[in-house]
Design a protein around this nucleic acid. Structure first.
Lengths: 178, 178
DNA sequence: GTTAGTGCAAACCTTTTGCAGCTCT
DNA sequence: AGAGCTGCAAAAGGTTTGCACTAAC
């Protein structure tokens, strides 16, 4: 289990395992990947209503600095927040559908190949690497084509305010905080 | 020249080539890559002191939406701002030294390979891809080793305030705005 | 008992938005 | 003329910081 190895690593470095950190660590570990600070905070608050958002940020920062979690942007599909996942699995790329938001992970040899070539080409010592890819997933390619077609046949239906987005399921609105 | 093809593309789409956009486009094109909004704004202000920061953001957003520029994070080495570069050259990865901040670009076949594999593996239609790598450049590996050694021999010299960073050239402080 | 860590409030940086006025075509 | 852009001010979103108090070791 990942949790143990993370806690071990922290203890070695003399980092205190406070109640708050235990809650956060467990959530990060067992929820799987792609949690952002706010969502982690919301989940942690259910376990300890007193736990503060700042503690979440500080913990994530520490874990990142210690190389225990990786920070992702997921192409800023939703907004400018960061996402975190434990650094355990093999290196992988994140593939984000710009229409439905689904995130796939790609493992595979081109990634190792890329890493090695960069290291030898520049004599570079890689500490972290991040590959993110945006586009349309198989499912959305069809739907997208249909949407474009509809737009073409019924052009520029005027609407109050902002320029009309693609109809149906478009990008989610920026999440507002409570 | 890149500028022409960008301006052409904008004209085609009925986007107006205002004085402000011409200034920004020219700066983006000929300054080379890795400008963030604030720096672009500062440079643009020299050509037109009235030009507003908001216009810079709006222009960048439009160029990005139109696929004319790519947005980079450069591993958030400096802060959380984004960097932009014209999308002209072949796909490439950005390699950032976490000590001196130097950015190298890596072209090379593993990138195309990766792209193709992702497309065929998921049936995914890639629109944008971004690979960023952080670590130590050849030069800084040596210096870094020396720093760590120094720290080991002269431990925990207490200092007012924050936990001491690596001596010498450490990460730049967050840039403050005027 | 120390020192690291927490909570709170307030700041901070980056980016977006509403709206009135200006300007390209 | 009129849609599209701009500038200004203000807000929002995401994250960090200062400081006094608390809790882990």
């Amino acid at each position: 289990m990942a949790l143990d190895s993370i806690e071990g690593s922290l203890k070695e470095r003399g980092v205190r395992l406070t109640r708050q950190r235990q809650i956060l660590l467990e959530l990060i570990d067992k929820t799987g990947e792609h949690l952002d600070a706010e969502r982690l905070y919301q989940m942690a608050k259910e376990k300890d209503p007193k736990l503060n958002r700042v503690t979440v940020y500080r913990t994530l920062k520490m874990l990142k600095a210690g190389g225990l979690v990786d920070e992702l942007d997921l192409m800023h599909y939703v907004g400018d927040q960061h996402y975190y996942e434990t650094r355990l699995k093999q290196e992988h790329a994140h593939v984000i559908c710009l229409r439905c938001g689904k995130v796939e992970e790609f493992f595979g040899e081109p990634l190792q190949r890329l890493r090695k070539q960069i290291e030898s080409h520049f004599g570079f010592q890689i500490l972290l690497a991040r590959t993110e890819v945006g586009g349309y997933c198989a499912h959305c390619q069809t739907l997208r084509a249909r949407e474009v077609e509809e737009l073409r046949s019924r052009p520029a239906e005027p609407e109050k305010g902002e320029a009309r987005r693609t109809p149906g399921k478009a990008r989610p609105a920026r999440a507002r905080r409570a």
